[in-house]
């Protein structure tokens, strides 16, 4: 197999995902409305109650809207990652996952292509959101918008790999509502997306401990630092390591030699 063939495969998977995204306008709108409601309504309402004191990487006192934007960026990616794994469950029920898996390319490569495609879709959403936030008045240094790109790629891979792993366990589409309740909400709320860790600690030590163990916290911090032209080494290391572990597990879960797909098929097959 030539390297060019690998390239064509990647291009094909990515362009399919982007085309599908373009055709699902309601999905795009929903993906934007969610964080915008948080920004316009929640943050505006709570800024009096929850002023945020000086905290890294910010140089001055900041408004709550400013604090919350990196968390909302993470939220967009989290939702997108889960949504693409939802589409994987759907794809599997509908068989288009099989179309992907009968391709002669190695399975790990196909899954990585799929993850990259989902990540790119989430990055498009993030930048549209950031433009709206900018117009609303939440402005970061221009260079920050460039520097967050690698952070977005890593975060997209992390949440995408998590979703892929979950999709290998979920048998049917209906079970997916549970993922909303048991994965997305805890990951988002028990993180530094809405309040800084030190502030959570003042409220509840237990919640603080959970948030400090939540990899999503580090994804948000990595994005937050990058946005203000800083590099958070610890956060990046944790996110990259988590991504590697999740990706490895997801590839194992889709390995034909393991039992995972077998059990799944057993449910519906003849």
């Amino acid at each position: 197999m030539s390297l060019a063939a690998y390239g064509h495969c990647l291009r094909g998977v990515v362009s399919r995902e982007l085309l599908r995204f373009v055709h699902q306008r309601s999905r795009f709108v929903a993906a934007l409305v969610r964080p915008l409601i948080w920004l316009f309504v929640f943050a505006a309402g709570f800024r009096m109650a929850l002023g945020v004191a000086m905290t890294e990487p910010y140089q001055t006192y900041i408004l709550y809207e400013v604090y919350i934007v990196p968390g909302l960026v993470g939220m967009i990616q989290l939702f997108n990652g889960m949504q693409s794994s939802l589409s994987m469950v759907y794809d599997r029920e509908m068989g288009s996952m099989r179309v992907l898996l009968v391709s002669p390319f190695p399975r790990w490569y196909l899954l990585v292509c799929k993850l990259l495609a989902g990540t790119l879709v989430s990055i498009v959403q993030v930048y549209v959101f950031l433009v709206i936030a900018y117009l609303y008045g939440v402005k970061a240094p221009l260079m920050g918008y460039v520097l967050i790109l690698p952070a977005l790629v890593v975060t997209g891979f992390m949440v995408g790999a998590l979703g892929m792993l979950l999709s290998s366990f979920v048998r049917q589409l209906e079970n997916f509502a549970g993922i909303m309740n048991f994965v997305i909400f805890p990951m988002f709320f028990l993180s530094s997306a809405l309040y800084p860790l030190w502030r959570i600690r003042e409220g509840s030590y237990l919640v603080y401990q959970v948030a400090a163990l939540n990899p999503f916290t580090y994804a948000v911090e990595m994005i937050r630092f990058a946005m203000y032209e800083r590099f958070n080494g610890d956060a990046t290391l944790i996110v990259v390591a988590t991504t590697a572990v999740l990706l490895g597990l997801a590839i194992l879960a889709y390995n034909p030699a393991r039992g995972m797909m077998t059990r799944k098929a057993g449910a519906g097959a003849e």
Binding site: H8, V13, R16, L100, P104, F105
Partner: peptide, 25 residues
Amino acid sequence: FQQPTLDMDLTVRQNLSYHGALHGM
């Protein structure tokens, strides 16, 4: 496959091009 596996919102050409890419074309 037994189930239909084409992308409904995409054109025939886009569907076939996707498959070609999965075979390195």
